[in-house]
């Protein structure tokens, strides 16, 4: 490839938009080869790959985002779309209304509270604390909350993905060690603590756990956006 062509393509949105899509497709293929391994997370693999490409080629993030913003924009409608599974599982929510309300309130307060306390104990600056606070909610919502708290949405996005992977890895051995056999409760906990990545893991372990996890993810998005204002 001639230098001229590279300079031309690297400045066009087309290269980074198509590049993101192709890298994502390849990452989902790799993830499919290791379905039980939460470290083979396609979002994480894509982020690391693209970040490395930008770092090595010296392309700045602003330029990349000019192409990738078309994907980024869909976060809003995707958050609205989370209302559909919530509606479809309404009967299940009704039958477990009180346990869900209790676990949702206590869990959401714990997720946000423990994050802020630890962040302050580590002496992180306010910007980082605000970016970490909503880390248990699904990325679209977490980034919106982070922005409203004057945090940095891009730092939030990375931390949200790491939180999801952490929950997906520890949940099964941890719940077994705690002796909790109620898959509804286990699913609800992992969906609340680690959103969509935890929910994907819950569905792989048990269908009831998956359902409860998806419900917890949707409800926690709403509750966390209110709870953070009690702390920050």
């Amino acid at each position: 490839m001639s230098d001229g062509l590279w300079v031309y393509l690297a400045t066009s949105p087309l290269l980074w938009l198509s590049g993101t899509l192709v890298i994502w497709i390849f990452a989902t293929f790799l993830a499919g080869l290791r379905p039980g391994n939460p470290l083979f997370n396609p979002t994480l693999m894509s982020i690391v790959t693209i970040a490395a490409i930008l770092y090595l080629t010296g392309i700045d993030y602003q330029r990349y985002f000019e192409g990738a913003q078309f994907i980024h924009f869909l976060l809003g409608p995707a958050t609205v779309a989370l209302g559909i599974p919530l509606y479809e599982k309404l009967a299940l929510v009704r039958r477990n209304l009180l346990p869900m309300i209790v676990a949702l309130t206590v869990g959401s307060l714990t997720a946000v509270g423990s994050t802020i306390l630890l962040s302050e104990a580590f002496g992180f600056p306010q910007l980082i604390t605000a970016s970490l606070a909503p880390k248990s909610t699904t990325a679209a919502v977490a980034m919106a909350i982070s922005e409203s708290l004057a945090g940095d949405p891009s730092l939030t996005a990375t931390v949200v993905v790491l939180t999801g992977i952490c929950g997906a890895i520890v949940v099964t051995p941890m719940m077994n060690a705690l002796g909790v056999r109620d898959y509804g409760a286990r699913g609800f906990a992992v969906g609340l603590a680690s959103h969509g990545i935890g929910t994907a893991r819950a569905f792989a372990v048990n269908p009831v756990a998956g359902l409860f996890s998806g419900i917890a993810m949707g409800l926690n998005a709403i509750v966390t956006s209110i709870v953070v204002h009690l702390f920050l």
């Binding site: 477990n96 676990a103 206590v106 994050t115 520890v170 109620d182 509804g184």
Partner: peptide
């Protein structure tokens, strides 16, 4: 921070769910 707070959140949430279900009832 991510590991500690995620583990604490998982434990507290699952225990409060199980406890509330024992008190109020519910079906999985």
């Amino acid at each position: 921070l991510i590991v500690v707070s995620t583990v604490i959140t998982l434990a507290v949430t699952v225990w409060s769910f199980v406890l509330a279900k024992r008190i109020f009832g519910g079906a999985s």
